[in-house]
Design a protein around this nucleic acid. Sequence first.
DNA 1: TGAGTATTTGTCCTTTTTGCCAAATAGCCC
DNA 2: GGGCTATTTGGCAAAAAGGACAAATACTCA
Lengths: 96, 96
Amino acid sequence: MIDSERYTYMASVLKAMAHPTRLFIVDELDKAPKNVSELTEMVGIDMSTISRHLSILKHAGIIAATKSNNQMIYRLLCPCVLDMYKCVLQIKEQED
Amino acid sequence: MIDSERYTYMASVLKAMAHPTRLFIVDELDKAPKNVSELTEMVGIDMSTISRHLSILKHAGIIAATKSNNQMIYRLLCPCVLDMYKCVLQIKEQED
DNA sequence: TGAGTATTTGTCCTTTTTGCCAAATAGCCC
DNA sequence: GGGCTATTTGGCAAAAAGGACAAATACTCA
C-alpha cells in the first residue's frame, strides 16, 4: 500500500475525533476554551473519563492546554476540523 | 450532552474512515471505481478483510456498490471526505 | 505545613475492532 | 447441472478502546 505511513497517521487523527463525546468537546472548545470541570459538567460522565478524552485529542494535535492557577484550560487548535462535521452531515442528507 | 444523537451519528461516520486501509481505499476509489480483487491486490491483505472494510465504508454511506457480472464495483459517493485529509495534514504541519 | 480544589494516572473489566481461515453464496459459461 | 471466478459471511483469537473507581499528583491559600 503506497504512502502507508501517511494513511496510518491520518487514521490516528480521525480516530481521535471518532467519538461522540470528543466531537462534543471539540464543538464546545470552538465556542470558547474551557476547563475540565466545565466540560465534565456539560457531558455528565466521570471527570477521569473526560480527562482521558482530552488527552486523546491533545495527543492528536487537535487541542492544546494551558495551566491557569490550578486549572487546565483546553482550547481548539485547528478549527478546520469543524469542516469535517459539514461533510459528514452532507453524507447523512444524501442518505435520507 | 446536547445533540447527543447527532454526535453519535457523526462519530460513526468518522470511525468508518479512521483506518489506514479504509483511507487508502477511499483515496483509490476517488481516482476511479474498482472491484474487490483490484483493491485486494493493491493493499496486499486477505480479500475477506478488504470486503469487510468495504462493507464498513458502505454502511457509513461513504461508498456504494454496483454489481457488474459477477463483480462488485465500488465507487466513492462523497468526494468531500477527501477534504478531511487536507485538514488532518494541516494538523500535522502545525505540529512539526 | 495542611486543607482543599482540580486534574491525571493506575487498575480492572467489558465491549469493539481487526484479521485470518474456511465455508457459503452469487453469477457466468460450458 | 457442474465447474469456475468473485465476493461475502461465520467463527475464532489477539489487540485496542471505553468507562468507572480509587489513588496519586499539582497547585492555591490560609
